[in-house]
Each structure stands twice: as C-alpha cells, then as structure tokens.
Nucleic acid binder design. Sequence first.
DNA 1: CATCTTGCTTCTCTTATAGTAGCGGTGTTT
DNA 2: AAACACCGCTACTATAAGAGAAGCAAGATG
Lengths: 111, 111
Amino acid sequence: MTTPLPGRPSRGSNSGQPIMALFDLLGRRWTMRLLWELRSGPKSFRTLQEACGGMSPSVLNTRLKDLRKSLLIENQPQGYALTSLGDHLMKKLDPLRDWSEDWSTALGKSD
Amino acid sequence: MTTPLPGRPSRGSNSGQPIMALFDLLGRRWTMRLLWELRSGPKSFRTLQEACGGMSPSVLNTRLKDLRKSLLIENQPQGYALTSLGDHLMKKLDPLRDWSEDWSTALGKSD
DNA sequence: CATCTTGCTTCTCTTATAGTAGCGGTGTTT
DNA sequence: AAACACCGCTACTATAAGAGAAGCAAGATG
C-alpha cells in the first residue's frame, strides 16, 4: 500500500485534505504506538520491535519506511528518532494520555 | 477481533494501559475518520457510509459497535452521535488539523 | 398495495498483518 | 582467524482484517 501523504487522495478520501491523509497514516496498526515509543529518545530497529511486544519485522519495516517518507522519523546513528515535525505531532497527541485516564474511569476499569 | 478497552491487554501491549488501548482502538481503519465525521453532528448509518467514500457496511457496522462499547458514540433518534466522552476526545484531536497543515507544507505539497 | 429509506447481514475476494527463519554487514572478544 | 553478538533488514507462509456487492426485515410514505 502506498504511503498516505497530504495533497493526494487517501483511503476513503479523494479530497487530499491533510487531516484525512493524517488519519489514514495514523490509522494503521502500530503507527501511533511506534511514534509513542520514540518520544523517549532514539531506538534501534530491534529495540523498537521488542518495545512493541515482538511485532513482526516485516510490518515494522514498512511502518518505518512510511514514517520516513512522511518526514516524521529519521534514521540517525543512534537509531530511529522523531524529526522535529514528528516531535511536534507527539506533543499534540500528548493530551490523549490524560483523556485516556478519564476514559478508563468512565468505563469502570479505573486501574 | 475484540474491542480494545483500558484495563485489559490490547494488541501489542500486555500492560492494559489506557493509552495503549486507545492507540489500539484508534489505530484501525476508519475509526478516527468516523469520529471526525461525527464532530459536525449526528449522522445516520448511510450518511456516514457516504461521508467515508462508500466504506464497506460490514466494517462500518463493526466500527460502530466498537465505538459504542467504548462509550465514544451512541445511537440516538437523529442517528449516531458523539457522547460527551467522544466529544472531549475530538476536542483533544482538534489541534491535529493545524499540525497537518504544517505537515503538508513541510512535504512541499502545500495545497 | 407499491415504493422508498434505514440499519444492518451475509457472502466471496483481496489486502494487510502475523509469525518464523535467516541473510549480509559491523564490531568486539578470544 | 574464529566465534560471537548485535544490527537493519528480507523472504516466506498463514491468518486475520477489510473491500465490495447483494439483499433482507422493519418502518415510513404514497
């Protein structure tokens, strides 16, 4: 499957609106999780794989490719790392942590 | 597949941390998109389907089920609508629209 | 009665992801 | 040099998720 990028139609959207491309990109298994794991600093391919519970290397590789194409991560000597663009995105996603706590409570599974 | 909920292990995470369950839930095709479409008010099954470019009714149905279980949407007389919980989540996701514009620019596809 | 819309269900086919194995390269230790 | 340990992958098969078309039962409308 092709990497979803703003400016060109994505899955279920022929408008090419950036937000739709973003949902298409993030709405794939492991994508948000991977970015989340990289918040704490660069990680190697295998470290990432372990951090994600032994996720399939084939999928990991395709995700890493997509995220690189999307300029959200880059391959540095220390390993894969968020770009400043990716870092900004994660900062936008950060409030989700608080929300998910409330969510947990609402569902009566309040840890 | 089972609906990911906080408090129980989700795909790639045996911790049951709410944020992981959230990523698991949102990291599925159409999920974020559906919530996004409901921001503007309640929509019927078929309206939603059209809004999402004719997405498969089978998938739509399972997503709606999942989102109801997760208390993010509910079935009202006017159609499917965000719960207050779902509405709060969308407010947290709203800054993504701005970010995606910057993203678009960075990729040189500035609309 | 006939016709429309709505919320689905059922079916088959294709695509995405999981899971295991292993390669070639680099660096370090013996 | 040989052995090991790591690295970023690639190739393969098996299963699960999603696409796409058809249609059905229930309710409203003519």
